[in-house]
Every structure is written in C-alpha cells, then in structure tokens.
Amino acid sequence: MDGLNLLPVFAVGLAGSVHCVGMCGGIAGALSGVPAAAAPRRTIPIAQATPTPAAGTASGGAMRAWTAMLPRQLPHLAIHNAGRIGSYMLAGALAGGLADGAGTLALASHWQGVAYLLANTMLVALGLYLMDAWHGLARVEAAGNLLWRRLLPAMRYLLPADSPAKSFALGALWGWVPCGMVYSVLLAALLSGSAAGGAATMLAFGAGTLPMLLALGVAGARLRQAMQRPAVRAGCGVLVLCFGVLGLVRHASGLSHGWLDALCLAVPP
C-alpha cells in the first residue's frame, strides 16, 4: 500500500469523524481536562448572577479563560489521541498480518475478493448511517461490546490520568470503543496484505479523525451541536457513501489501476 491509497482512507476518517461526535464526543470532553493535581477549581469561570456583567464582557472573559487553558489541554489531548491511534495501528497490524499469513492459502484470491466487497459494503452502510438513512451498522457496533466490557474495568486503575503514561494508556483503551467506522476501515487494513500496510492504513484513518476529536476536546458541547446538524451529517455521509459505491462499481466492472486507485479504499484483488 502506497501513499496514494492512503489518501481516501484519510478522507474517510475526516468525513466520518462526524460519527465520532456522537460516539466519542463525551469521552473527548471528559479527557480534555488537565490532571487533577494541576486542574483549577473551574476550567472556565462561570459569571455570577449578580452583578450581571454585559454580555460582551462575560463572553470575552470566558474566551480569555478558555484560551488560557489551551496550553494545558492540548498536550493531554494529544497524548490521549496518540494512545487511541496506537490502538488502531495495532488492530490494523494484526488484520494485515492475518491477511499476509492467509495469502499462502489456495483460496487466497477468493477470500480477498469477498473481503473487498465487504469492505466497500461497510462503507456504504457507514455513509447511510451518517445520513441517518439506515442504522444497521449500530448492530455491528453492539457486537464489539463483548470486548469493550472486558477492557472497561481497567479504566479505574488509570484515573485520574495524572501522568503521561496513564494518559496514553487511557487513550489506548479508548481506541477499542466499539465503532462501526473503525471496523469498516479495518477491512481495508486486512486487504493491505501485510502488518506494516495494515498499521499504515489505520494510521491514515486515525490522522483523519484527529482534527475533529482534538476540536471536540477543546470546544466541547458547542462543536458537538454544530456537527450533529442533519446537513453536516448528510454531506459527510454522502462522501463516505461515494467511496463505497465507487469501490463496488470498480469491482463489478473489472476496472483496475489508473486514477481510480486514488479514490478507492483498497485495491481489488
């Protein structure tokens, strides 16, 4: 897998990150604070009921306090997200390594074709999910709860996240939250055919989700409300849907290589 094939993976992560708003927005907000030992009593001062300041003054004060918090918030958010993306890369390496081992089997081309169809079908399902047109992908996410329930108790040993090691470990656990979008891209990582290719695929995907999740950690509820607007979700859903449909059309028509490589999540077998 080369850099050209990673561009659509990054784009899916970027567009699909509106799903992260509902799925992980609360987690990003909860992890955005500085460690308990260093945290102030209030992250952003709340204006007192009396005397009532002018609206502009109150807004300006909140904005100054929020800006002052950024240098302390961003390092912790970066560490949490590094752990999250590290988990994605580990999962991708496992998926790609599995495919590499299976590549020696006589039926390798058959299962690769099935995996390619499934990967693009999952993208279509993700696009419809983002558009609120079909919610079948939620059932796939529910299946991941079996693993998540086993990992969840470990979080109590990592709170408060008062060290970089704890922050990274907490982020690494976050990376295993059941998510249909992650599962969709993991199928593309499987098709990369190697552990390195699978890890690179998931790194590109994680990088695509990073801007939204960093912004969610900083801006919180206000950004969540904006990103949950139907028009925003529909636009992002259409983009992801197009990637999936293009991959399916390419496979059905037998088209190969050329400029379509830059628009397909995985190269068909």
Rank of each mutant, 00 (worst) to 15 (best):
D2V: 08
N5C: 02
L6Y: 05
P8A: 12
P8H: 14
V9L: 13
A11S: 07
V12L: 13
V12Q: 05
L14Q: 04
A15I: 09
G22H: 06
G22S: 13
I27G: 00
A28Y: 04
G29K: 02
G29W: 05
S32G: 15
V34K: 01
A38K: 12
P40D: 13
R41S: 14
R42F: 12
R42W: 09
T43M: 13
T43L: 15
A47Q: 12
T50V: 13
P51V: 11
P51R: 06
T52S: 11
P53M: 10
T57H: 13
G60S: 15
G60Y: 15
G61P: 00
A65K: 01
A68Q: 10
L74W: 11
L74M: 14
I79E: 04
R84Y: 15
Y88T: 03
L94C: 10
L94I: 15
A95I: 10
G97R: 08
A102Y: 01
L105K: 02
H110N: 08
G113Y: 09
A115N: 00
L117N: 03
N120R: 06
T121Q: 01
M122G: 04
V124E: 05
Y129K: 06
M131Y: 03
A133S: 13
H135I: 05
L137C: 10
R139P: 10
V140Q: 02
A142K: 05
G144F: 07
L146P: 00
L146D: 05
L147H: 05
L147P: 03
W148I: 09
L151E: 07
L152R: 13
P153A: 13
M155S: 12
M155D: 01
Y157A: 14
L158Y: 11
L158Q: 02
P160N: 07
A161C: 15
P164M: 09
P164E: 12
S167V: 13
L173W: 08
L173G: 06
G175E: 08
G175K: 03
W176S: 10
C179I: 03
C179W: 05
G180S: 10
M181V: 14
M181N: 02
V182R: 00
V182A: 15
Y183D: 01
L186K: 01
L187T: 06
A188H: 10
G193Y: 07
S194H: 01
G198Q: 04
A200P: 00
T201S: 14
M202N: 07
M202T: 05
F205R: 09
G206K: 02
G206T: 07
A207M: 14
G208Q: 04
L210T: 11
M212F: 12
L213I: 11
L214T: 04
A215I: 04
G217A: 03
A219D: 00
A221K: 08
R222M: 09
L223E: 02
R224H: 09
Q225G: 14
Q225M: 10
A226H: 02
Q228V: 09
Q228A: 15
P230C: 11
G235S: 15
G237T: 08
V240T: 08
F243P: 02
G244I: 10
V245H: 00
L246N: 05
G247M: 05
G247V: 09
V249W: 10
R250V: 13
L260R: 06
L260G: 01
D261L: 11
A262T: 03
C264Y: 03
L265V: 07
P268R: 03
